[in-house]
Design a protein around this nucleic acid. Structure first.
Length: 949
RNA sequence: GCACCUGUAGCUCAGCGGCUAGAGCGGGCGCUCGAUAGGCGCCGGGUCGGAGGUCCGAGUCCUCCCGGGUGCACCA
């Protein structure tokens, strides 16, 4: 009989039910079901009932489609915050929300309804939208929960909730009351065929041939004031445009303040002019311009107008032959930085009612938002010459008229093919047209300035977020609140049918808010105006014939007030909340709208800190999102996209949690199957390390067997101290939201400190000592604390696995059922001793020995059979001698002999002593003898062969 | 076009003015078979995106360029 087999049965080998394989795809749903059953979210909150509150307010994802990796990154990050802050000792309520109104849903519903929609009322369409939003909310909710994210999933907030809509209207009322809300005009995409405003998403770009014309506008006054050389001459500013129909709406010609212009003398083709004619264009574009117009001019006669001279053009009047009624020819030259030299003449025809930049320029310079074009895309009575004519059709007429009057410089038949916006539905070219809209005035009551101040009172993580949002708020234009759509919260204003006045009244709005609280915003569409107004409401003209506003409010305003709608009402919340956490695009979005609504209605930012993360990219650095994949597909590129559902089905959600935790979210994060597989390796390393610990605690009861710190074996004490420092580091990293450092430190600790080092040494004591030996209990005490600490510290990231670890851990009195109800474990303090200074020396010896042993092992030897001679310099020798007794165990070799030398040398031989058949240490004199330790461990009850019969 | 962010081994990250730039994982090789779909050891692998500059000294500070991302603008 081979005695080895027998002795194996006398060892204290690890025993545990904690499986080696995670089997996460199967195990996670079981854990989720248990959490669900025990109401884990409420339980966790309950466990922290008396702790200080920390509120992470959820930014609502859009209730459309399935979740993608961006959602996963965001939600898991939030969950890491919630779980880590909880375990650090806070009460952390988390109420998930959904953004339910807005265009994408409305469009999706349009598509589902098809032609049916034509016969439906607004209210009916809205009911379809409502159902659609709820459907996707429900599916996303399941998908988020599957990730192990804790939250109040039973009572999420939806922006279509009655109480939420009420809050939106109340916020509007506050803005109205304090005078921020006004009605103005702003250019929007407009489809004349469908007679509707279009959102960005509804616009398609197609190639389109447009007229390309150069037009001169004669300057009034004496050009000699600009340059004496122009004395007695005539001068014109020259513009280029592809939309002749906008010329009647021209209100300005704009130059760039730093470009050099030239006045180019030409002889015009019609020969009617007697005086020399100078055409003013940007110097850099002069040749191109002349060529395009088939004009010639000797450059020697050009008069250069450097910025200081062209500046004299500022405010100068010019004539526009097709411009606004000749009675008020107040066209003036101006300057702006948006002028470019890419095309044209370096002088920009500006029509504030029909172009965004033109509009902004007009706003700055007090120009009218002049848009004499009606819903059908036809000129109004303001343009008598072409009244009632469609602007696209009238283009050729306008070109002819300019040609006839001698103002057209180019060939009337010139065209240019470029991409031009078309209506996504009817495919007709669209126009840019100013229509009346509702705005919030940024500079009313210092809203902008106070918002900027609030930005500096907020903590931005990472810090550059501050600059980003600061610049945006600093430069943004007034907030256009209205949308010509049906799926949203109506703007609760009215119009007087008799005098046309607008009724913007905070009291009326508050009244509407109450109706919405009761019946939802659908009431606006279901009920007549009288039923929505407080009884007896009249226009200031005395009329009671009031008409409802048709526009709805921008969805960013809706989500922007979530802090009010969701957080203010809850007793465990409180505004400002501790943290907003979203993708960096939300500087322009939610962080922005929340800031403005917060400052506008409560005079403060609704958050104390804002954390942003980057985007998810694939391995090639391209955005990894469904829309991006689809786009690529359309363009004939292929990008592989495995939807997260499939990953979860195959590998579970835990790996996705590790992915989120392992990446530095401040940058863009890369997702790929390869990365996930790598994480799988790390996962297994950690899992097995923990499994080893659990296995060696099978006979350990902390209440009975724990050894006091002072009585621990030196190495154990050292590792208890190391553990304490690890815990401190990890908690700080959690606190600072540096999850990837937590992950890194966990891996490194498990792989390097524990598995390859501590445990390697410990195995002998754990397996071979008598079960109750003080030396073994000492090791188990540290293992136990290690397991506790790992289980709790890994719990925010390894939400599922940590739960299983916790369940397999010997219980201590008062331990909660779930690890998520526990706090981060703090191992006992270890007073700093001289060991802390000596260990690095020993560790160097260990490393050197291992290298030296490599050759020994290559000759089919076991390191446990090695006899090592260490020649050490005095400093190292002194330390080594001090620990001479333990050194062989520490290096996991048979025997170590020390001597002093000039430099470190290692010599390895096979040990001469015989092997103890139980512990394999070469310490016995005679083959077959047990070493004293093993002899003691096996007597009397566990004599060799005794257990196997 | 403008602004901001970003670029260290195959992958994920450390390193934040000073020894021949590190770790984990992956890879290669070997050992073990008492953590075994595991454990241990060793090895190879980087002109720190590029070019200038400041400095006794730069992955680390400055400037420019290149690649990637985001936002804005343009395209209208």
């Amino acid at each position: 009989m081979d005695s080895k087999v027998d002795y194996k049965a006398t060892l204290n080998l690890p025993k545990t039910d904690f499986p080696m394989a995670g089997n996460l795809a199967r195990r996670e749903p079981e854990i989720l079901a248990e959490w669900q059953k025990q109401g884990i979210y409420e339980r966790v909150l309950k466990a922290h009932e008396r702790d200080p509150v920390f509120v992470l307010h959820d930014g609502p994802p859009y209730a459309n489609g399935h979740i993608h990796y961006g959602h996963i990154l965001n939600k898991i990050l939030k969950d890491l915050v919630v779980k880590s802050r909880t375990m650090e000792g806070h009460r952390v309520p988390y109420v998930p929300g959904w953004d339910c109104h807005g265009l994408p849903i409305e469009l999706a519903v349009d598509r589902e309804l098809g032609p049916k929609k034509a016969g439906m009322s607004k209210a009916e369409v809205r009911r379809e939208c409502d159902a659609y939003a709820r459907r996707f909310m429900a599916s996303q909710r399941e998908e988020f929960q599957r990730l192990g994210v804790f939250g109040d999933w039973e009572r999420p907030y939806l922006t279509l909730d009655h109480s939420y809509e009420e809050s939106v209207v109340r916020a509007l009322a506050t803005f109205a009351r304090d005078g921020y809300l006004y009605r103005g005009k702003k250019p929007v995409y407009w489809c004349a065929h469908c007679r509707t405003a279009l959102a960005e998403a509804e616009v398609e770009y197609q190639d389109h041939a447009s007229p390309s014309i150069y037009v001169r506008f004669p300057l009034e006054g004496d050009p000699a004031e600009i340059d004496p050389a122009l004395a007695g001459a005539r001068a014109s500013v020259v513009i280029w445009t592809t939309t002749p129909w906008t010329l009647p709406t021209n209100l300005a010609v704009v130059l760039h303040p730093t470009f050099v212009y030239v006045a180019v003398p030409v002889a015009l083709a019609d020969g009617t002019e007697h005086l020399p004619e100078y055409l003013i264009v940007a110097k850099e574009l002069a040749h191109r311009f002349l060529a395009a117009c088939h004009l010639t001019s000797d450059p020697s006669g050009w008069i250069e107008l450097p910025p200081e001279k062209s500046a004299l053009l500022r405010g100068r009047r010019y004539q526009n032959p097709v411009g606004r009624t000749p009675k008020e020819p107040d066209f003036r030259v101006g300057f702006a930085a948006h002028v470019t030299l890419a095309q044209g003449t370096g002088l920009v025809h500006t029509a504030p009612g029909h172009g965004m930049e033109d509009y902004l320029y007009g706003q700055e310079h007090g120009l009218d938002v002049y848009a004499p074009v009606d819903d059908a895309g036809c000129y109004t009575a303001d343009v008598p010459r072409w009244q009632g004519r469609n602007v696209h059709e009238v283009n050729t007429d306008i070109v002819s008229a300019l040609h006839a009057s001698g103002h057209l410089l180019s060939d009337p038949k010139d065209t240019i093919t470029h991409s031009y916006p078309h209506c996504w539905r009817c495919k007709q070219p669209i126009v840019f047209r100013a229509t009346p809209q509702w705005f919030i005035a940024l500079d009313h009551a210092g809203l902008r300035k106070r918002s900027l101040e609030e930005i500096d009172r907020t903590r931005w993580i990472p810090p550059w977020g501050r600059n980003r949002i600061f610049g945006m708020i600093e430069h943004r234009v007034d907030w256009c609140l209205s949308r010509q759509r049906v799926w949203g919260v109506p703007i609760p204003c009215f119009y007087c049918d008799d005098c046309g006045a607008t009724l913007v009244d905070a009291h009326v709005m508050e009244h509407v808010a109450e109706i919405f609280a009761e019946s939802g915003s659908s009431a606006w569409f279901d009920r007549p105006a009288e039923a929505l107004l407080p009884p007896g409401t009249r226009c200031q003209c005395g009329s009671q014939k009031l008409r409802k506003e048709e526009d709805i409010v921008d969805v960013w305003f809706e989500s922007g007030v979530s802090w009010a709608a969701v957080c203010e009402g809850r007793k465990d919340h409180g505004v400002p909340v501790d943290l907003y956490l979203e993708g960096s695009d939300q500087h322009r979005g939610w962080f922005h709208s929340a800031l403005l609504t917060g400052v506008g209605t409560r005079d403060r930012a609704p958050y104390k800190a804002v954390l942003t993360h980057g985007f998810v990219l694939d391995e090639q650095g391209r955005p990894y999102s469904k829309t991006e994949i689809e786009k690529a597909r359309r363009e004939g590129r292929t990008i592989e996209y495995l939807p997260p559902e499939e990953i979860i089905k195959k590998q579970g959600a835990e790996l996705l949690r590790l992915w989120v935790a392992s990446e530095d979210y401040r940058n863009d994060v890369v997702y790929s199957q390869n990365i996930l597989d790598q994480l799988g390796e790390s996962y297994r390393k950690i899992r097995n390390t923990v499994r080893f610990v659990l296995g060696n605690l099978f006979d350990f009861d902390p209440a009975k067997h724990a050894v006091a710190v002072a009585d621990l074996q030196p190495l154990d004490r050292y590792f208890m101290g190391k553990l304490g420092r690890l815990c401190d580091r990890l908690r700080t990293a959690y606190e600072e939201y540096e999850f990837h450092l937590v992950f890194r430190a966990l891996i490194d600790y498990c792989a390097v400190d524990l598995s390859a080092y501590y445990f390697d040494i410990l195995k002998d004591r754990l397996y071979c000592d008598a079960p109750t030996a003080a030396t073994r209990r000492s090791a188990q005490t540290v293992l136990y604390e290690t397991a506790r600490s790992l289980a709790t510290l890994m719990a925010p990231i390894f939400a599922f696995t940590a739960e299983d670890v916790w369940r397999h851990l010997p219980r201590r009195k008062g331990d909660p059922e779930s690890v998520h109800q526990a706090r981060f474990s703090a191992p006992p303090d270890v007073p700093a001793g001289e060991l802390e200074e000596e260990m690095p020396v020993l560790e160097r010896l260990r490393e050197a020995t291992q290298k030296a042993l490599e050759e020994f092992r290559a000759q089919k030897n076991k390191t446990i059979d090695a006899h090592v001679w260490l020649t050490l310099p005095m400093a190292e020798h002194l330390v080594a001698v001090k620990h001479e007794e333990a050194l062989a165990d520490y290096l996991v070799v048979a025997r170590v002999d020390l001597q002093v030398g000039d430099e470190r040398r290692t010599l390895v031989r096979r040990a001469e002593a015989e092997r103890c058949p139980r512990c394999w240490k070469r310490v016995v004199a005679r083959d077959g003898d047990l070493c004293p330790r093993c002899a003691a461990a096996t007597t009397p009850a566990r004599a060799p062969g005794g257990t196997t019969g």
